[in-house]
């Protein structure tokens, strides 16, 4: 029973963080088939933005997350204009953009390492937004208040994204572009502006997800790589571009990872997820939440 609660608690936490990261990736993929390999470094940067705001600028802690979200969005916009913007007409855009953003991500990561080495230190910082280990008990299992904050934050942001997509003109335009690009252009949607907007939104969410990650594990320049890959796994599992599916898949992946970590060993978490996704792809290539068997060739 204890194990069970432990798995649920930490699974929900992983799930919440992956969901934020994955929703951003899924939105961007849905809008213009771009898989952003610099997503991970944007998560890392988000954690550093929060640190910068709270620790070095001495601004109110409550606003650190919104600040990071805005900065993440700005990085997303910059990333768009130095990569995708020039590449949209390329024949193999889906593939070339992966390589390009991989290069961009690596450059940013190495640059961040270098910058910190020169001016500060590369060693981990503790996230000022973390509440530490203070916790309450659920049937003998300690649940930290930090987890509550992460859950609440993730739920609020996802609900906001949902409302944005379903209720606002801009959100409808995002969905329209994802569903039929030419049709969207025919009703006057400036598709390129939508691409920028979606990448900004996705990157902002990634930045917040990065803060959440660092609130459990400290802030470190290489912290984003692993969760980014897991977010990729989540959207593959859900079926690329399926946003609600990505939410469920994020929870599923979080639970599986937590179960493996609690019951077997920490390091097999990722391997277990990978096996899960490979089995899922063989069994249901359109994603486990895919509506139909969309040909993926």
């Amino acid at each position: 029973m204890n194990y069970f609660i432990q798995i649920i608690v930490s699974g929900l936490t992983f799930g919440a963080m992956y969901a934020l990261a994955a929703v951003g990736l899924a939105l961007v993929w849905g809008a213009f088939n771009m898989l952003n390999m610099s997503h991970g470094i944007i998560m890392t940067l988000g954690a550093y933005f929060a640190l910068l705001w709270a620790e070095y600028m001495g601004m109110p802690l409550v606003l650190a997350a919104p600040f990071a979200l805005v900065c993440g969005a700005v990085v997303g916009v910059i990333a768009y204009f130095i990569s995708a913007h020039w590449m949209l007409k390329q024949k193999n855009f889906e593939v070339t953009i992966i390589i390009a953003t991989f290069g961009l991500g690596m450059a940013l990561e190495a640059g961040l390492l270098k910058f910190l080495r020169e001016l500060f230190r590369t060693a981990p910082y503790s996230q000022p937004l973390s509440l530490g280990a203070k916790s309450f008990m659920v049937a003998d299992v300690p649940v930290s208040y930090q987890r509550l904050v992460v859950w609440a934050g993730a739920i609020v942001l996802i609900v906001l994204v949902g409302l944005f997509l379903s209720r606002t003109t801009a959100g409808r335009a995002v969905r329209a572009v994802a569903q039929n690009r030419d049709a969207a252009r025919l009703v006057g949607v400036p598709v390129r502006r939508i691409y920028v907007m979606v990448l900004a939104l996705g990157s902002g969410l990634a930045a917040v997800s990065g803060i959440m990650l660092s609130s459990f594990k400290d802030v470190h320049p290489l912290m984003g790589g692993d969760p980014m890959l897991k977010a990729f796994i989540v959207i593959v599992l859900a079926g690329l571009g399926n946003i609600t599916g990505a939410l469920y898949a994020a929870l599923l992946v979080g639970m599986v990872e937590a179960a493996v970590k609690v019951l077997i060993a920490d390091k097999y978490g990722f391997a277990a997820i990978l096996i899960l996704v490979i089995l899922a792809l063989i069994w249901k290539p359109a994603g486990i939440f895919g509506r139909s068997t969309v040909a993926r060739q």
Binding site: T169, R172, A173, A176, N180, L186, V187, G188
Partner: peptide
Amino acid sequence: PQGDMLFPEMSVYDNLKMGAY
């Protein structure tokens, strides 16, 4: 356009609303 240029996962109302984007 022909019927294949709609937004398939949106309601009729939302499709109309997109017309008035």
